[in-house]
Design a protein around this nucleic acid. Structure first.
Lengths: 185, 185
DNA sequence: CATTGCTATGCAACGAGGTGCATAGCAGGA
DNA sequence: TCCTGCTATGCACCTCGTTGCATAGCAATG
């Protein structure tokens, strides 16, 4: 399990409440690790009782109070330990690949709409990534120095961009292949 | 859930036992959808009681008997229905991306070995895919016709190849980035 | 004959993840 | 005033996936 570690990284980048973490998991971090708010609250509880994070009640005006979590020393150690131990091949779940192979036993052309929907979703995400890259990494840092946090976030984002580009190209390949089996071919 | 559908596709491509399915999930299908043998046996039971698959006892000599499953009409219908309904963005789990962002708060250089291990794994898988492509799709089909099953399997394999190439290129990018934070830089 | 190893099937238990629902404060508009 | 909507936290339940273990047939090896 690595949700705890993803939360540690997010809290190290910036302390926040469970609700704020949930929103981060809908954008930046969420593109590489998904989690719902219930999952996050549950794990935060456990991390708190394990002493990995500290909690601070933050009264707010104009909205409900919140609990702000930040990483404690044992949490940092746990993260370092995890970084050091080998993690294995992320288990893949590409339902679209299953569908493409399954289309051979049904109507291949019926899958075209679905593939196009996915292509649009990936195109939108690519545009989103690129906008983020321009916004956050378009200009070199003010001090001109080497900022590990910034550089490593950037290389992860480049990975996201490469992934989306690859997917779009592959989906075009799929569409071209499916088109060859159109009825009346 | 789509394990049932992955099993349907695999059984349509070739009927087989739970054991044989489990082995297929370690290679071809397994590159896009993972499953353990316990999971497969459990789901096969449910699919059988739902009438999606038929079972046939196959006595074997020199090894234990087996139950050979094949897809029944309702199973085919279920697959077609699933192909038609929209499936959503595969939930991503890239622990390596989390680790890379986390490395900013630990020793970035300590991650190099781990990234190299992943690079080797992806290189090996790419070689495996390419060997499979040459073996199965290196020469055009004997009848020269358009075989949907064959063509669609090929396009999925091309997707796997594209994915591995992208990953290797990205991991090189990560390694170059991490190297800039070596101690004594 | 005992051990190892592969084929083949399965149970039990646990933990992770997801869905639905509940609660509550407060703002803004109909 | 009521309703909608956003922030904020949480419980209960159920399914999926994984781990460990058990059983059993048969072959090959020492």
């Amino acid at each position: 399990m690595a949700l705890e570690h993803a939360i540690l990284v997010s809290l190290l980048e910036k302390p926040g409440s469970g609700y704020e973490l949930a929103r981060r998991f809908e954008r930046s971090i969420g593109y590489f690790w998904t989690a719902t708010h219930q999952q996050i609250y549950r794990v935060l509880k456990r991390m708190e009782s394990d002493g990995w994070v500290d909690v601070r009640d933050v009264p707010q005006y104009g909205r409900p109070d919140k609990k702000e979590y930040s990483v404690a020393a044992p949490g940092r150690q746990a993260l370092s330990a995890w970084l050091g131990e080998p993690t294995e091949p992320e288990s893949v779940r590409h339902d679209l690949a299953v569908k493409v192979r399954g289309a051979a036993f049904s109507d291949p052309a019926a899958l075209i709409d679905e593939v196009e929907r996915h292509r649009e979703a990936h195109t939108a995400r690519l545009a989103h990534y690129r906008a983020g890259e321009t916004r956050d990494f378009g200009t070199p840092p003010a001090d001109g120095g080497l900022d590990a946090e910034r550089e490593l976030q950037h290389v992860v984002l480049r990975g996201g961009i490469a992934y989306e580009q690859m997917m779009i190209a592959w989906l075009d390949d799929v569409l071209a292949t499916l088109a060859r089996f159109r009825t009346g071919d």
